[in-house]
Write a protein that binds this DNA or RNA. Structure first.
Lengths: 118, 118
DNA sequence: TGGCCCTTTGGCAATATTGCCAAATGTTTT
DNA sequence: AAAACATTTGGCAATATTGCCAAAGGGCCA
């Protein structure tokens, strides 16, 4: 793998990795519907404020969200709207997984109860 | 966060996380251009075969790729084509990051050399 | 059968991530 | 100024990820 490709893959992976956590997925999804302050996100996620703050800084360092201080609160919002394309494809993978799971279940129950397969 | 949302976010994060590694990004990108055997991917990534095999099993467990054994080789391919939408958005984030980085550099060099800003 | 590929698995040490508490910082209110 | 609130940071233990080596299948061919 040549040096340039390596740097490129690392840059991409860094961004994707930042999205790879349940709480962060949840927060990004909420942010796609509009800005939120840390307190709102904290309430939503149900973890310690400090934990949420650190999650947000991961997203911020990756360039996925931006923050804006207003008074004593900090509001976060998506920096790039297309993040949702992401989730569209994730959904497609999940559906494929579910379909396969169903097929497996069908086969298993055929094996157990002796239904006829081609 | 209610139980259903939690499960949903975990499922999504699991898939995204599987893509969050430089070697895996590289491999998925290659696979988007067609199937590849483990040996090809190994050569491409430049790591130990066992390492590559483990990366592939991460992608497979997430439902991102599928494998097919032919003779003594195993060929991997994408299971869901839209994975590329992913990279499209990642690219957008990278560009936003680069733009911001440039703006920062401009400001810094103004500060250092005293150019005029509005 | 024996030897040679291709691939996966087990094991392990190095490293990174996560989440909480406590404490620090900055802001608004009393 | 003190109290109350919103957020970030430092520290730390628990956990997960990563990558190599060694070893274990399977398949192919002489």
């Amino acid at each position: 793998m040549d040096a340039k490709t390596k740097v490129q893959c690392e840059a991409r992976a860094r961004i994707i990795k930042a999205l790879g956590h349940p709480s962060r997925v949840h927060m990004v999804e909420a942010l796609s519907r509009g800005e939120r302050c840390v307190c709102e996100l904290t309430e939503m996620v149900g973890a310690d404020v400090s934990t949420v703050s650190k999650h947000l800084s991961v997203l911020k360092n990756a360039g996925i969200v931006k923050d804006e201080k207003r008074g004593s609160q900090v509001f976060y919002s998506l920096r790039v709207p297309c993040i949702l394309d992401f989730f569209g494809c994730v959904e497609a993978v999940l559906q494929a997984n579910a379909a396969e799971h169903n097929a497996l279940m069908r086969r298993l129950s055929c094996a157990a109860f002796g239904c006829r397969t081609k």
